[in-house]
């Protein structure tokens, strides 16, 4: 298991063009990031393409990493997640909304999350428990499935204006919980 400092060092190496550092970062993080791609895209070929796009972006932007305020794993996960969401949305745009109905029950926490002791879970996971289940699910769906307000409104069968108010309130509540120590 690599530490945060190890990963930062690899990114710094990549910033100066060190390809060995790229390989080291890939070895240390690609399984996690590929898992994210598979989770978001639910399609192996697309997940491989997305992982490639994400690592190319990371390589090309490594010299700018130190200027952003992210911890290294957050940066890698965010780049990967955004890349996957973009692909997912492009796919949805191609297919229309045909696949909408089959996706519904997908965003609940996996069995792994339930197995992690509450004390070791990320704060956001605990804070999500303070939300009504459908609101926690809406946040997960937005983050992990890239759902738009319109899609969330359709899934939860509420008007578009309502969903935004509804989700903003949930996010505000989440923010209050997250900022408590």
């Amino acid at each position: 298991m690599r530490t945060t400092a190890d990963i930062e060092e690899m990114i710094a190496g990549m910033a100066s063009g060190d390809r060995d550092a790229f390989d080291a970062l890939y070895a240390a993080t690609s399984a996690k990031l590929f898992g994210v791609c598979l989770r978001v895209l639910n399609n192996r070929a697309e997940a491989e393409d997305a992982l490639q796009d994400a690592f190319v972006k990371v390589w090309r932007n490594a010299d700018r990493y130190s200027a952003n305020g992210f911890s290294p794993m957050t940066w890698l996960i965010t780049v990967t997640r955004n890349t996957c969401i973009d692909r997912l949305r492009a796919r949805k745009a191609r297919l229309g909304d045909m696949d909408e109905a089959v996706e519904v029950a997908d965003a609940a926490p996996g069995p792994e999350a339930l197995a992690i002791a509450a004390s070791d879970r990320a704060r956001i996971v605990n804070c999500m428990e303070g939300l009504a289940p459908e609101k926690a699910q809406a946040v997960r769906r937005a983050y992990l499935e890239g759902e738009t307000y319109q899609e969330l409104a359709d899934v939860f069968d509420v008007p578009l204006n309502t969903i935004r108010t509804w989700l903003r309130r949930s996010l505000l509540k989440l923010r209050e919980c997250l900022s408590h120590d």
Binding site: G35, M73, T78, G110, E112, R140, Y143
Partner: peptide, 8 residues
């Protein structure tokens, strides 16, 4: 990003 913690 911590929402990905449970992703294997």
């Amino acid at each position: 990003a911590d929402l990905t913690d449970d992703i294997a």
